[in-house]
Design a protein around this nucleic acid. Structure first.
Length: 276
DNA sequence: ATGGCGAAAAAATTTCGA
């Protein structure tokens, strides 16, 4: 199974690049973030024409997530909520369109667009921490606990210095502060592991380059798009790569796709990755 | 230290993202 995640920063602006990506890499599942479009206006036709099923959960102008799959998706959840907070059932995670989830080949995939937070003194930062706390409580209170779990998307957080091109400058600011790192770590618990780091220990690998300041030309980026897997899946992962090429497209998203190849359902596997 | 750039909404500028 080949899974991908990509913050496209508007599906309508990036549609031809998504089509090209599907044709070129042929993922079984592509998780999109920042589709920035209401559901009735989602450009589904050219994707479905390629044999992919599309599920989307969007809103006007901001946020929005989608699942594009060539396998059957079961138990699709447009948004999630129902987390228990102080013994009350909450709907906080449905306030903004940031999560979509489904079962694919027995794997529970949760596609997230974590709030950015703006700056450490912003109300939006409080919201980011609260959002992550609710996500933690969601995982604690749901049956996903017993399913192989893949949590992927745009996290807007780095957990380690080596995921920032200039840690000296950015290490305690937004996307790298201790509180949000702890909040994400609490979501992951001991169950979820960053599959990219299973294959690559070095710094210098980014998934997002700011549009400003010539960050792409200078290769000054951050690795904020992640794929987290539970143990059954980690043990069968073949590769995880950042599809950096897409950031070099004409009129690109500021994020590049991230891909994981998993031997699933587990087969006798003497091959290296079939993908890269 | 600040502002870069790009997209959406909507009609020249403003808001937001990271």
């Amino acid at each position: 199974m080949l899974f991908a995640t990509w913050n496209v920063n508007s599906i309508r602006t990036r549609l031809s690049q998504v089509e090209e990506f599907l044709d070129e890499t042929q993922p079984d599942l592509l998780c999109l973030q920042e589709t920035k479009v209401e559901d009735k206006l989602f450009p589904r036709e050219s994707i479905e024409k390629r044999g992919y099923q599309v599920s989307f959960y969007g809103q006007k102008a901001y946020n929005g997530v989608a699942l594009i799959s060539n396998q059957k998706l079961d138990d699709i959840r447009l948004g999630i909520s129902g987390e228990l907070v102080n013994n009350q059932v909450s709907t906080f995670l449905d306030e903004q369109k940031r999560i979509i989830s489904a079962l694919i080949n027995g794997i529970r995939v949760v596609n997230v667009y974590v709030p950015n937070g703006s700056s450490l003194d912003s109300e939006k930062y409080i919201y980011k921490l609260k959002w992550l706390d609710h996500l933690k409580k969601y995982f604690e209170s749901q049956e996903e606990r017993s399913e192989p779990l893949c949590l992927m998307g745009d996290f807007n957080i780095v957990l380690e210095e080596k995921d920032i091109h200039n840690p000296k400058r950015f290490n305690n600011g937004i996307m790298a502060s201790l509180s949000e790192r702890e909040a994400l770590q609490n979501v992951l618990g001991t169950r979820l592991e960053d599959v990219f780091r299973l294959f690559e220990a070095d710094t210098g690998h980014w998934s997002w380059w700011d549009y400003r300041s010539g960050a792409w030309q200078k290769d000054q980026g951050w690795r904020i798009d992640h794929i987290y897997l539970s143990e059954e899946l980690i043990n069968n992962a073949r590769s995880c790569v950042i599809h950096k090429k897409a950031r070099g497209n004409i009129q690109p998203s500021d994020h590049a796709p991230v891909l994981v190849d998993i031997n699933w359902p587990p087969q006798e596997d003497n091959e290296n990755s079939l993908f890269y």
